[in-house]
Amino acid sequence: MASSGKSSFHLALRAHALEALNSRTEAEQKREKAWLNRQRQERLPTGLSRREAAAIRRELRVELATRRAAGEFAGTRDLVLVQAVREELRARKLSRKWPKPPEGELDAPGRRWGTPPSLPLGEGGYDARLSLKLPHSLAETVRRAAYWTSVEPVRLLQEWDDRWGRAGEIVARDSELSGAPVDLALAEAAMRPSAPQAALEAREKLRAQVLTTGDLLRAAVDRAGREPQQTEVPAGG
Rank of each mutant, 00 (worst) to 15 (best):
E169Y: 14
V182S: 14
R163L: 14
A54L: 11
L106Q: 05
A84N: 00
A91H: 02
E42T: 06
G179N: 10
T141L: 05
E204Q: 15
E28P: 01
G179P: 02
R86F: 00
L44M: 10
W113L: 12
S4H: 14
S49E: 03
S8I: 05
S23L: 02
A235N: 12
E28K: 01
L134N: 02
K100F: 06
L36G: 08
A180G: 04
E123Y: 07
E32H: 11
R40A: 06
D162V: 10
Q39A: 15
I56G: 04
P181I: 15
Q83S: 12
A108G: 10
S49C: 06
L106R: 00
E232M: 12
L130C: 13
W164F: 14
V62T: 13
K93C: 06
A167P: 04
P117Y: 06
R96I: 07
G237Y: 05
R50D: 15
R43M: 13
S175W: 09
A235I: 06
T141W: 00
P101F: 10
G237M: 04
Q209H: 06
F9R: 04
G71K: 03
E42K: 09
L106F: 05
A190S: 14
E159Y: 00
L200D: 04
A202F: 03
T231W: 03
K100W: 07
L211A: 03
A54P: 02
A185L: 11
A65T: 08
R51H: 07
A235S: 13
R57F: 11
E105D: 09
R40T: 07
H136G: 09
Q230P: 13
L156I: 06
